[in-house]
């Protein structure tokens, strides 16, 4: 079944290598695995954040009401009577000023600063925003309706870019790991060139020779990936634990079960990739000889 992958103990002796994990390859794979998982976790967190933001904003609208003191009650009642509208509420002027304070400081409390009145509401899926807008305009002609989704579009776009960046980085790290494995495999071939020539002369097939190498590389890759994954898990847990302080920054975003499964698959995928690449590299190199 997997016998193509694994050489017997007497076959392993042929290369005369110490048993167990050795050489720089496991370290290299561990570093790659660690980086891949951390980057992928960040990418997933960004993706989840973007999803949460997009979802919360999807059906949410605001109405900006100039001359709010006079018009706001009419707008609110117009909204409440409109079809498909729920959760219509006025954003009190005090709230607006509190928000502005973040940007303007105490100047926000200046009564001379005109602060528009705001109302916000949710619109049921499939309801007609144009009809709502007409009713609002009849209550307050200068009022404007803004979909939150519109306001958030640039932010979401940035988040998506970050997400793709993370994905690209993971792919690059995988490519770098593969390249390193190819170099390691070629190095091992050079080291054992003599033994391989002798074996070929006796009628060993390329697959037989490759078996001697791929077991070692598969084990190196598996051990390296697992070690990198463990280190990444430790770092991610530490980060999450200390993230209460950073809660605002991360938006309290957690990785879901599916995300964690995906992250756990990464080291396994890296092991499989490394083994396959090494096998292919060895077979290709062997084919150069007669």
């Amino acid at each position: 079944m997997l016998s193509w992958l694994f050489a017997s103990s007497s076959q392993r002796r042929i290369l005369g290598r110490p048993a167990g994990v050795s050489g720089p390859t496991p370290w290299l794979i561990a570093i790659m695995s660690f980086s891949m998982i951390v980057v992928a976790a960040a990418g997933l967190a960004v993706s989840n954040t973007a999803g949460t933001i997009a979802k919360s904003a999807e059906h949410r609208y605001s109405v900006q009401v100039p001359d709010g003191a006079r018009n706001l009650p009419a707008v609110i009642s117009a909204l409440r009577s409109a079809r498909g509208v729920s959760g219509a509420e006025a954003v009190p002027e005090a709230d607006m000023r509190a928000t502005l304070k973040t940007w303007l400081g105490s100047e926000a409390d200046n009564p001379d600063l005109p602060v528009p009145a705001m109302a916000s509401f949710d619109l049921a899926a499939g309801a007609d925003i144009a009809a709502v807008e007409r009713q609002v305009k009849s209550a307050a002609p200068n009022a404007t309706i803004v979909a939150h989704r519109e306001n958030l579009r640039p932010v979401l776009r940035s988040l998506r870019v970050l997400q793709w960046l993370a994905l690209g980085l993971v792919a690059l790290l995988a490519a770098a790991a593969a390249a390193a494995v190819v170099l390691a495999a070629r190095g091992a071939l050079d080291t054992h060139r003599f033994t391989i020539d002798v074996m070929h002369g006796m009628g060993a097939t390329d697959v037989q020779v490759t078996q001697l190498f791929q077991r070692k590389i598969a084990i190196d890759a598996l051990v390296g990936s697992a070690a990198g994954a463990a280190a990444a898990a430790a770092v991610l847990l530490l980060f999450t634990a200390s993230a209460t302080a950073l809660g605002e920054l991360t938006g309290g975003v957690r990785l879901g079960l599916a995300d964690i499964m995906l992250l756990l698959l990464l080291p396994l995928a890296l092991t499989a990739l490394a083994t396959w690449v090494a096998r292919t590299a060895v077979l290709t190199a062997l084919r150069q000889a007669l």
Partner: peptide
Amino acid sequence: RAALPEFRRRIGIVYQDFRLIRHL
């Protein structure tokens, strides 16, 4: 190329320089 191992298994070779694998 893939057909050669089968032939090689029917041939014994004594190389001038022995070509023994030194760690075996």
